[in-house]
Amino acid sequence: MGSVKAELLRLWKWPATWVLIGVWLVMTLTFGYVFNYLALNGGTNTRGQSQQQLISAMQPENVGAAVVRGLPMFGGAIILVLAALAIGSGYGWGTWKTTLTAGPRRVSAMAGTLGALGIIVVLLVALTFVVNLGASITVASLEGWDWSLPGVDVWKPIVASLLIAAMWTGFGVFLGVITKGPALAVGLGLMWAIVTENLLRGVGSLLGPVESLTKVLPGGSAGNLAGAVGGSGAPGVLNDLSGTTAALFLVGYIVVFVGTATLLKVRRDLV
């Protein structure tokens, strides 16, 4: 518990945490509401979406879908960067040696970091939900639409969002530990989340096995889960797998990323 408190204190007071959360909230508002609102009110190109689709995307009752659709790619990339920085920076600052000589077992120290990151990520998803709900209510009120709050089935996209966020957190942690630094971890992570999987999807249209593989890669699984719970109209959202299959792949990735990172942290010399 002391390790979680320690990590939470330092992550809470870390400007990078709030900068990344802030950037994500601005992105989700801009792409989820501001641009759609402008398109609805005089825009000339609505990306092929009908007025009804734009209205539906901004309705408060669909806020769950609005939260989850941004996470497979851009939201995920931001969460990955946060996790990779949180873990990787400790090597450069020398704080890992301070942490690992403080008293707790290595596995407890790692659990403390993961626990605190988990709390921050839950907070990020919760803030995304609240901010999106606020934006959707504002738009609905401005436009004079009949609107209602999301129903109880909003738990599905929220749980899916948490699962997707947990996978990207695990990926960031894994990269931070394996590269023992923030720069390479962030670089590799962004490359994977934004570029590599998209390139592979491009290649997949030429090669069948690659196409099948892209569906179950980390970003692909996240995109498929987002698609299965109603997320649509955002980069990275897919509809190739069932929600259950995609969720199982995500759980698998979390286990592999977090398990490998913890194993390395526990067994590797800190020189």
Binding site: R10, K13, W14, P15, W93, G94, T95, W96, K97, T98, T101
Partner: peptide
């Protein structure tokens, strides 16, 4: 050990 390891922003 080999210099202090602390969070620079704290």
């Amino acid at each position: 050990i080999e210099g202090p390891g602390f969070y620079p922003y704290l």
